[in-house]
């Protein structure tokens, strides 16, 4: 007889459920079975009404984030074999986001925060295409390379207790992305982004819990990015104070 594992899946269908509930499924076990494979097995073979997001199956698209036994994980990158010691595997929608249906979260608040920090190259004057690319040395690229690995999966937001308490907090992903562009030698938009970093909802809501960096599936280390953002905001504060003392406007 085939060995099976119990997978407890959070269900929530807004048209018929008043609150999320848990449903157990028995899934045939194999060494290489990921949580995503298990969810697809359930949807294809047992209950076609189950809703979950996924696309690439290789930790690039960032759409399959869920809570696995209370930890934010990419379901494609998490394997049932690592939970063999435990009686069951529990899968639910990402913490800190409203649930749309079953395992599907509404991450629009997170997407809005990403757009707030203007995550693109800002130039005071765009050079014409004929002038060629903006050159950059490997050393200059290394300054921001780690922060550019983000796949916008939202696991760091599910991990962040500050975002959970105040959704206005820009959060780890957006602040790491702001840092990624502020550290880019081709970018001239740091002054515009600093106003967001300087705010209470910017870097200063972070109390350096550090769980965001622990759960990040791409080793972006958003906690380090935020702390570097704090240094930048600190210097910005002192410069602004000096400017006020010299009679300039409060920026």
């Amino acid at each position: 007889m085939t060995e099976t594992v119990t997978v407890r899946v959070q269900r929530y269908r807004p048209e018929e459920d008043t609150a999320p509930w848990e449903q157990s499924f028995e899934v045939p076990y194999s060494e290489d079975l990921s949580i995503l494979d298990a969810l697809n097995q359930i949807k294809d073979q047992q209950d076609p009404t189950l809703s979950h997001r996924w696309s690439c199956r290789m930790a690039i698209c960032g759409s399959c984030g869920v809570m696995v036994n209370n930890e934010p994980k990419l379901s494609c990158k998490t394997f049932l074999r690592d939970y063999r010691e435990q009686a069951a595997v529990t899968v639910r929608a990402l913490d800190n986001f409203p649930i749309e249906r079953d395992l599907v979260s509404d991450i629009s608040g997170f997407i809005d925060h990403l757009e707030t920090v203007q995550p693109w190259l800002i130039r005071s004057e765009e050079q014409p295409v004929s002038a060629g690319a903006y050159p950059q040395t490997p050393e200059q690229m290394q300054r921001y390379a780690a922060f550019s690995q983000c796949i916008n999966c939202g696991l760091c937001y599910a991990a962040c207790p500050q975002f959970g308490r105040d959704p206005a907090f820009l959060g780890p992903g957006a602040l790491a992305l702001a840092q990624r562009y502020n550290l880019d030698s081709r970018d001239e938009g740091a002054a515009q982004r600093m106003q967001w970093l300087n705010a209470g909802e910017g870097v200063w809501s972070c109390t350096f819990v550090g769980y965001c960096s622990e759960v990040c599936p791409k080793d972006v280390d958003p906690a380090a990015a935020i702390n570097r953002g704090k240094v930048a905001s600190d210097i910005n504060y002192a410069v602004n104070l000096l400017n006020i003392l010299r009679g300039k406007d409060d920026a």
Binding site: Q195, A199, G200, E201, W204, D234, Y237
Partner: peptide
Amino acid sequence: MRRSHEPVAWSLFGA
């Protein structure tokens, strides 16, 4: 967005 005055506390904390 309003500038936070947390840098004052954070500088003393860091020092």
